[in-house]
């Protein structure tokens, strides 16, 4: 009898120790009572809106441009807002409509924007003393391909539909071989950013891709394993570097102020750190003629947008 009682007590104690369903913290919500969301009013201060074309993924962009945006905000003493879009075209549309003030765009985006609605050059970055970049044809490191010819009937990754280094130039190369991308490659797809195109090749998702040399170098610096997983089989002639542009709607004084800030950026410690985060040395003035070679090839390739 006594043992029975002990057993019973043990059971009771064991039962008490085991917790029941967790109790709520007292917050009650009525999910059925739906209210319209509050309207968001613009604040008094108009921020400087900066757009960065999707050369790298949105998160990569947000991370690497943070210091630059901080620098601009402090120097100009006004809030800076980063506006990102998936495609180069969407960014160009933002510049055209004046929804953003400053944009970091790709070479072909500039050529298109300049020719279509007078997108204006503000400055060009300088890397290793040059303000040019290349289109690099990359393949997985274990691929046997040595030239573009070897990629026939393979899967090819384009970056953005209007990217110069990622689409216009490789299309030009395929055309030189007497093909169109659709007939030459078995399949093509868009990654919408250069770093994702590199990873698509590195992971074997694509048999080849053409990428911005600046993004490629920068990506290899950040992820050393990439050097073992991809290799370059072709380097293009130099083209004008992707510039910093302003909307034609931005007032000239504002333009001048922005240009001044960018060009003197490397003179301060904070500015240098922001440049370093982007893999750049400094911003310099750049002429529209720097993009003539690229413009020429773009014209040969013709309209890429069906």
């Amino acid at each position: 009898m006594r043992y029975l009682w002990c057993l019973f007590l043990v059971l009771v104690i064991a039962g008490c120790n085991s917790t029941q369903a967790p109790t709520s913290e007292g917050v009650s919500i009525d999910l059925a009572s739906l209210q319209p969301l509050p309207v968001r009013y613009n604040e008094g201060v108009v921020p400087l809106r900066v757009s960065v074309a999707a050369v790298v993924s949105p998160r990569g962009t947000a991370e690497s441009y943070q210091l630059l945006l901080n620098y601009l905000s402090e120097t100009l003493d006004r809030p800076v807002e980063l506006v990102q879009r998936r495609t180069y075209q969407e960014t160009n549309d933002l510049v055209e409509s004046g929804e953003v003030d400053v944009a970091f765009v790709c070479t072909s985006a500039y050529i298109t924007g300049h020719d279509q609605f007078g997108m204006e050059l503000l400055a060009g970055p300088e890397v290793s003393g040059e303000s040019v970049y290349y289109s690099l044809l990359i393949v997985p490191s274990n691929s046997s391909a040595e030239t573009l010819q070897d990629l026939q009937n393979k899967v090819f990754a384009f970056t953005d539909p209007i990217s110069y280094s990622g689409r216009v130039y490789p299309t030009y190369l395929v055309q030189q071989l007497g093909h169109t991308p659709d007939s030459f490659f078995s399949r093509t797809f868009f990654t919408y950013s250069h770093d994702e195109a590199i990873y698509a090749v590195a992971d074997g998702l694509a048999d080849g891709a053409a990428v911005d040399s600046l993004v490629y170098d920068f990506a290899l610096e950040r992820d050393v394993t990439l050097a073992e997983r991809v290799r370059v089989i072709h380097r293009s002639p130099p083209f004008g570097i992707p510039p910093v542009v302003v909307s034609p709607n931005v007032r000239p004084q504002q333009q001048a102020l922005l240009q001044e800030v960018l060009l003197t950026m490397h003179e301060t410690q904070q500015g240098r750190e922001a440049l370093q985060a982007l893999g750049l040395e400094r911003f310099i003035l750049i002429e529209d003629s720097a993009y003539d070679s690229a413009r020429q090839i773009t014209e040969i390739v013709g309209s890429l947008i069906p």
């Binding site: 919500i29 009525d30 999910l31 059925a32 009572s33 739906l34």
Partner: peptide
């Protein structure tokens, strides 16, 4: 804390 997107249909619960 502004709601960007949600799965509710025709409004958003108060205080959620």
């Amino acid at each position: 804390n502004y709601v960007l997107a949600h799965t509710f249909n025709g409004g958003f619960p108060e205080n959620l």
